[in-house]
Amino acid sequence: MLQVESITKRFGGVVANSDVSFSVDEGQIVGLIGPNGAGKSTMFNMISSIFPPTEGNILFCGKRIDLLPSYKVAPLGISRTFQNLQVFKNMTVIENVMVGQHMRTKQNLSGVASMLLGIAKNERKVYEEAMDILRFFNLELLYDQKASSLSLGKLRLLEFARAYATEPKLLLLDEIAAGLNHSETSEMSELIKRVRDSGVTILVVEHDMDLVMSICDKLVVLDQGMKIAEGAPKEIQANEAVIAAYLGAEIEEEVV
């Protein structure tokens, strides 16, 4: 479904990704892991077309997407969440989700006319659908709250719900469990599995190893911009290079 082909990204003299290739098959949950500064977020931003790669191609369902602006990538069926939370904070919870439905509710000329007269007919339908999505993400009780008043855990759920509302084929989750406590994290991993079971392929960037190991079908490990391993969680846990580079780095971090 998604093919990343020998991607290199340079920011001036800094090489963020160097000749990285991997693929994501339909129906999988794939984890992109690695220590800080490994180039995971850079890779994510290229897949969602926030910026283009310096070299290489990214193909989605056989189509090149690396040169498209990001608002054109979304209609192809790619949606994402943001590590640093980009919720629409001055809007209510349900309005956030309704923006997620934006491109699925294209308007024709009569739609525009009814909008100007204030009698837009599909608003009710969009609203009901948004409410269903909120129920799926256990956010229905907060539907009329301003997003700015939500806790971090709820904000992460809202980002997830909003991305899901675009009806993506591929959903990119950028450190969706960062800052969550234990029970919130396990709730999140259940949710990710439920979303996968509803027919959405998922690519996650994650630091929480328990979460990654328990939900992912496949892991891709980056270190200093390069791919050092790819395989099932069991294989990765036993991989010498990963233990040396990744787990070693984590122990060092903990010492500091």
Binding site: S48, I50, P69, S70, Y71, V73, A74, P75, S79, R80, F82, Q86, V87, F88, K89, N90, M91, E95, N96, V99, G100, H102, M103, R162, A163, T166
Partner: peptide
């Protein structure tokens, strides 16, 4: 309104 709050997220929503 979504553009006003976060342009990057807005364009990711299409």
């Amino acid at each position: 309104r979504s553009i006003h709050d976060s342009e990057i997220a807005s364009s990711s929503m299409g």
